[in-house]
Computed example of a mutant assay.
Amino acid sequence: MKPGIGVNRFGGSAITYWGQGVARKWQKLETDGGKLFDNIVQATARDLLAEAITRIETAGHQIVMHIHDEVAIDEPVDSGITVTDICALMNEVPDWATGLPIDAAGYECDFYQKD
């Protein structure tokens, strides 16, 4: 809230904003390019996942949960759908992300586990 340019703790210029600091009290905070870049990357990854979820559900598959950059799908054993098929849906690059390298990987199991 209320972004601006201010002075950081070292006396240099910094991007500032109002947020919750120590003891959850509102105060003027500062940020830097690294934090901004990280937020942009995470927001882009979230948008890509949201579009992939929509494609997977539109194709008729039941997503039971998603965790960070993963989706868990409950698919009947005899459906003929493979992990490769689902990865292909996830690898479709939206027009707004043309040129962005995307490469989904997956695995099949009877219960959720980390690969």
Rank of each mutant, 00 (worst) to 15 (best):
D103E: 14
A52H: 07
K28R: 14
S13M: 07
L89W: 02
Q20W: 04
D32K: 06
V41N: 12
L49W: 04
G60W: 10
T98Q: 13
P3V: 10
T44N: 13
Y107V: 00
A14P: 05
Q27H: 07
D85W: 13
K114L: 11
P76V: 12
F111N: 12
S79K: 11
I81P: 00
E70H: 06
G19V: 06
G106A: 11
V64P: 01
N8T: 02
V83D: 01
R9N: 09
G80T: 12
I81F: 04
S13L: 15
T16F: 01
F10K: 14
M90N: 04
G21R: 08
P101E: 10
V93G: 09
H66L: 02
V71W: 12
N39D: 14
Q20I: 03
S79Y: 09
M90F: 11
H68D: 06
T82F: 05
G99K: 08
C109Q: 04
E51Y: 00
M90R: 09
R24N: 14
V64R: 05
Q113E: 09
A88V: 02
I63D: 04
P94M: 13
M65I: 12
I73P: 02
L49S: 12
R46E: 14
I86P: 01
N91K: 07
R55N: 03
D95R: 14
P76D: 05
N39Y: 11
W26Q: 14
V83T: 08
S13A: 13
A104W: 05
V22T: 09
G12D: 14
A23I: 00
W18I: 08
D78M: 08
P76K: 02
W26A: 09
D38R: 13
L100F: 15
G80I: 08
R55V: 12
T31G: 06
E30D: 14
Q42R: 14
E57P: 02
G21I: 00
K2Q: 03
P101Y: 10
D32R: 15
T58L: 09
K2E: 09
D74C: 07
S79W: 09
L100V: 08
Q20Y: 15
A88P: 01
T31V: 06
K28W: 00
D85L: 05
L49P: 03
A72W: 13
R46C: 03
F10R: 00
A52D: 10
